[in-house]
Amino acid sequence: MLEVQDIKREVETLSHRLGKTQDYLDIPALSAKIQDLEQLAAQPNFWDNQTAAQTTLQELNDLKSHIQQYHQWKTSLEDTKAILELLELESDPGLLQEAETNVTQLSRELDRWELEQMLSGPYDAEGAVLTINAGAGGTDAQDWAEMLLRMYTRWAEDRGYQVHLSEISAGDEAGLKSATLEITGRYAYGYLKSEKGTHRLVRISPFNANGKRQTSFAGVEVMPILAQSVELEIPDKDLKIDTFRSGGKGGQNVNKVETGVRVEHVPTGIAVRCTEERSQQQNKEKALARLKAKLLIIAQEQRAQEIAQIRGDMVEAAWGNQIRNYVFHPYQMVKDLRTEVETSAITDVMNGELDPFIQAYLRQENQLVESGAV
């Protein structure tokens, strides 16, 4: 348990951080904006354009939540200061514990809020489609892909996101060849975009009778789930659409008719496939939406890099391309090669403890933006 003087120092630090948060939010301007949007929402013709109306209401709710959150933080800090005054008069372990809990929780919430301010990309606030593909390494790589699927599922569920396994292709002997997760929730894409790339595993292979060490790879691709209001026209001549039998569970039509759809953008060679819906039309619509997301992200990133460099599905999941190493043997370590962040708590990482890696990447990218490097 912290001492009173330790908590006082924490309170001073939090007061400074909350002051910076207040300046950043500009509460008077925020309140004026809320009033303007409320007046707009009260107009008789507000719902004539439902898409615009929903966008306005979402912005209004976001602004209100910012002010509400700030006032909650301010109240918590004031309550903690009051507790410290009481502790100056009389020692009370219960009050001391309450004060420590308050500063710990407030610090964590400010950490998360400050991190979210770095998620300012046009699609950072959206949900995410995360695809895992087994790379070099045979059966071990397919097993590794399944391990990553579990890791990302746990990460998302621990953060309160909704997770849907929309597609999976089983491995030949074990694991999986590919899998796609739809992760729904605010800032899912903003956080997970840092995971795009090749992930390398080193371990004693459970599939090798001689117990030899094996290196295997899996590729991760991340795209946003776009709002319906986002528009991108793709000429029909640029699309190649194939259908196939989906296979697996999903209804009586799945194995009898060609409900699965693969859509390729011919100029770039980018392709997506969708099998999770019961009808071909539904799968086609979903595949086109995912293709649109890929093309928009590529257009956004193309300012700094060529398409061949940024396309997740163009990077070979093999030696020399990895963003992160996971070493199970002869020692235990997970190390991100971009930020140099590492940990020996490999079990925690595989159970979804990815935030230290994600946060370090976002802070690094933010520093590069502020310095003008990108």
Rank of each mutant, 00 (worst) to 15 (best):
R303Y: 07
E85Q: 11
A345I: 01
I241C: 14
V163C: 14
T347L: 07
K237E: 15
L2A: 13
E88K: 10
R159N: 15
I225G: 06
S169N: 08
E100I: 07
Q35C: 04
S279T: 14
Q39V: 11
F207I: 14
E340K: 06
H164I: 14
R213I: 14
D111W: 01
Q50F: 12
T56N: 03
W319Y: 00
G121V: 04
L119V: 12
Y24Q: 10
G312V: 11
W144M: 12
V374N: 10
K284G: 02
Q105N: 09
N283S: 04
A145S: 13
S246F: 15
R17K: 14
V374H: 12
E88F: 04
T101G: 01
I67D: 03
Q35P: 04
D242M: 05
G251V: 05
L192Q: 03
E264R: 10
Q332W: 00
N321T: 13
L57Y: 09
P356K: 09
A287V: 01
N210K: 10
I358Q: 07
D172R: 06
N49M: 10
I183C: 08
D140P: 08
E88A: 11
V263W: 04
S15M: 07
V334A: 10
E38M: 11
A145Q: 11
M314H: 08
R311N: 00
E353F: 12
L181W: 11
A271V: 12
A227H: 14
